[in-house]
């Protein structure tokens, strides 16, 4: 059974009052190249937000800065109640454990099984051999990993080596690994890239399902206009390292969004 079991509801889920993420005056430069030039925005929890922008607008850099996979040059980031820019190494690790990241490249360990890769998600909260390989994991952890695989419709491929799975299946294993992490916030960097349209749509549905069913918050970069419109509650547009658009998706005008997409990405 390879059909995703998480289906998005039609309407947005409950939204809590406080922001889950606040970014203020964020700047990032690589040498003299300024990528982010004073980015400001805030995200309410339990929402799906699409981050759009042309190539080189700073989307991926922004995403990495949010969990300090890239060090911000200036500005303030408050994520899940923590001031990210001032956290020490240990506190930063603990914060990252609460943030699930779905990468454009699935970044799974290729020679290992889907089940072991999913089990690795538990390394956010546990350490030691029991979270290294499924063969030596506890029964409880194996059962939990199987549940995560089941939620993405891949329970029947648990022991398949991930490098034998299709691109879409690998992306779903990566999402199952993220579920195993028990995240409170999801960052997705073009999870639909390099997938065929149908599979890309399934992956986006899967992510939106997590927002609707589990109440998680999602910030997703997408280069596909129809995905940005179809799978978000809100759209934030970046242009030249600054927020040039921030509005509910329902109010978004398709024509006005086109300037945030590269011509070849448009349908």
């Amino acid at each position: 059974m390879n059909i995703p079991l998480l289906n998005p509801a039609i309407t947005a889920g409950p939204v809590s009052a406080g922001p889950v993420l606040t970014v203020a005056g964020l700047e990032k430069a690589f040498g003299v190249r300024r990528i982010l030039r004073g980015v400001n925005f805030a995200l309410a929890s339990g929402q799906s937000t699409a981050l759009i922008g042309a190539n080189g607008s700073g989307k991926s850099t922004l995403l990495k800065c949010l969990v300090r996979l890239e060090e911000p040059s200036a500005g303030q980031i408050t994520l899940l109640g923590h001031d990210v820019t001032t956290l020490g190494p240990r506190a930063l690790r603990q914060l990252r454990a609460k943030v699930g990241i779905v990468w454009q490249r699935h970044n799974l360990v290729p020679r290992l099984s889907a089940l072991t890769n999913v089990l690795h998600g538990a390394q956010s909260r546990l350490s030691g051999p029991k979270v290294w390989f499924q063969s030596i994991a506890t029964d409880a952890l194996r059962a939990e990993a199987m549940t995560c695989l089941g939620r993405v419709g891949l329970a029947d491929r648990a022991l398949a080596r991930v490098d034998t799975l299709s691109g879409g299946q690998q992306q779903r294993v990566a999402i199952a690994r993220m579920l195993m992490q028990h995240p409170q916030f999801i960052l997705a960097d073009e999870p639909d890239a390099s997938l065929d349209p149908q599979t890309g749509q399934e992956v986006m549905e899967l992510l939106l399902g997590l927002v609707r069913q589990d109440g998680l918050s999602l910030l997703v970069i997408s280069h596909r206009l129809e995905h940005a419109l179809g799978y978000s509650d809100r759209i934030v547009g970046l242009a030249a390292g600054q927020v040039a658009l921030d509005q509910p998706t329902a109010q978004a005008n398709t024509a006005s969004l086109r300037r945030f997409f590269d011509p070849e990405a448009l349908p």
């Binding site: 969990v67 996979l69 690790r93 603990q94 990252r96 454990a97 943030v99 990241i101 990468w103 490249r105 970044n107 799974l108 360990v109 290729p110 690795h120 998600g121 390394q123 956010s124 909260r125 350490s127 051999p129 979270v131 290294w132 390989f133 990566a174 690994r177 992490q181």
Partner: peptide, 21 residues
């Protein structure tokens, strides 16, 4: 380095990354 970065982003420790990835 992709799988290592992914585990680091999860919050995995150095030993976990070495053995797992």
């Amino acid at each position: 380095t992709g799988p290592q970065d992914a585990l680091r982003a999860i919050g995995a420790g150095r030993l976990g990354i070495i053995v797992s990835a």
